[in-house]
């Protein structure tokens, strides 16, 4: 069948009519298949949800037990019939539990990548290429400017700054799901074994990662008892980026403002946010990863969604690959 009829965009999200389900819907629906636990992809209020066990656990941690009426854990690689189609989940390498979703009907297979990256990440399974007719790729960093450097060099920048400014607290802004735990794991791999202090918004997810066998070492809350004076001098403190503009940050005297994100590659972006030490660490593909993935999978068509769609579509045209933007709405193409 034609891929455009197997899966097409609607205001509620990408819809599969023959299977009666949506993928990562942005409004409550009867049946949802979810790629990963980030809030713009995994929303509460659907009736039936299918996702990997880890993604379901994360949704439960974030939204409570009532996040849906019934749920079904998808086993990676297993094929499940839903209505007239077959669906299967495959690792995406984005965050813990993240999966691509392959949808098949007859001889046609579409792979929805969700968000993905190709680099090694000690906190989740690596991306697995799945042959397909249509590959739906994200394009968060879909411009030729984005070349994310090696993680280890970025971690080394933080370690150098800790030595240069031992009197200042080092505040690392990192998204609560995935990025924060990855930074901690990378610091541990680099031999940093001092306590790492975390904002309260990270506690449950860090505990969950540990329960899934991802060791994070000595993690402590970055809180103070009333009247207690502690400077956090020379310590690493990790919190969601929004917390650093908040009153919460005032407990740290003269902090070094750090932000771990792929956006930090562009100096002006770092400057605008008042970031003093940018760490270019991303959970999305950079430009070479996006283009190499398309070359590797060799899909018949590429559909491009959230992010810099036009540049990736242009690149596909130059390579003679049929491509079009999907114009899905409701996803946070800056969230990283």
């Amino acid at each position: 069948m034609k891929p455009e009829t197997l899966l097409y965009p609607t205001p509620k999200g990408l819809y599969c009519e023959k299977g009666g389900f949506y993928i990562d819907p942005v409004q409550p629906v009867e049946r949802a298949l979810i790629t990963h636990g980030h809030a713009d992809h995994a929303r509460a209020g659907h009736t039936h949800v299918m996702a990997t066990r880890e993604t379901l656990d994360i949704m439960r941690i974030r939204y409570g037990d009532a996040f849906c009426i019934s749920s079904e854990a998808a086993v990676l690689g297993a094929r499940t019939s839903i209505g007239d189609v077959t669906a299967s989940f495959h690792p995406a390498g984005h965050v813990l539990g993240s999966a691509q979703i392959a949808v098949e009907a007859g001889a046609t297979r579409i792979v929805v990548s969700g968000d993905y990256k190709r680099r090694r990440d000690p906190t989740c399974l690596s991306f697995e290429p799945v042959p397909c007719d249509v590959f739906i790729t994200e394009a968060t960093f879909g411009l030729p400017v984005f070349h994310h450097p090696d993680d280890r060099g970025e971690i080394a920048k933080l370690l150098t700054s800790l030595r240069q400014f031992p009197e200042r607290a080092h505040l690392v802004g990192a998204y609560a799901l995935g990025k924060a735990q990855r930074i901690i794991a990378l610091l541990r791999e680099a031999g940093y074994d001092a306590p790492i202090f975390i904002h309260g918004a990270l506690t449950n997810l860090c505990d969950y990662y540990e329960s899934q066998g991802i060791p994070l070492g000595d993690i402590r809350p970055a809180t103070l008892a009333p009247g207690e004076k502690q400077s956090f001098a020379g310590a690493v403190v990790i919190g969601p980026p929004s917390a650093f503009a908040d009153k919460w940050a005032r407990r740290f005297p003269d902090p070094v403002a750090i932000f771990a994100s792929g956006w930090m590659l562009v100096r002006q972006r770092a400057k605008q946010r008042g970031v003093e030490l940018p760490m270019i660490i991303s959970d999305h593909c950079d430009w070479p990863e996006l283009t190499e993935t398309i070359n590797e999978i060799k899909p018949g068509q590429v559909w491009v969604t959230h992010g810099r769609e036009e540049a990736l579509v242009r690149w596909c045209e130059l390579q003679g690959i049929s491509a079009r933007p999907l114009h899905l709405v409701g996803y946070d193409d800056e969230g990283e």
């Binding site: 030729p144 400017v145 002006q268 810099r308 540049a311």
Partner: peptide, 18 residues
């Protein structure tokens, strides 16, 4: 592709370096 990139970054030296 260069124009998309330059429009996004805004600084010629930085765009080319990237």
């Amino acid at each position: 592709l260069f124009r998309y990139s330059y429009d996004y970054v805004g600084d010629l030296a930085e765009t080319i370096s990237l």
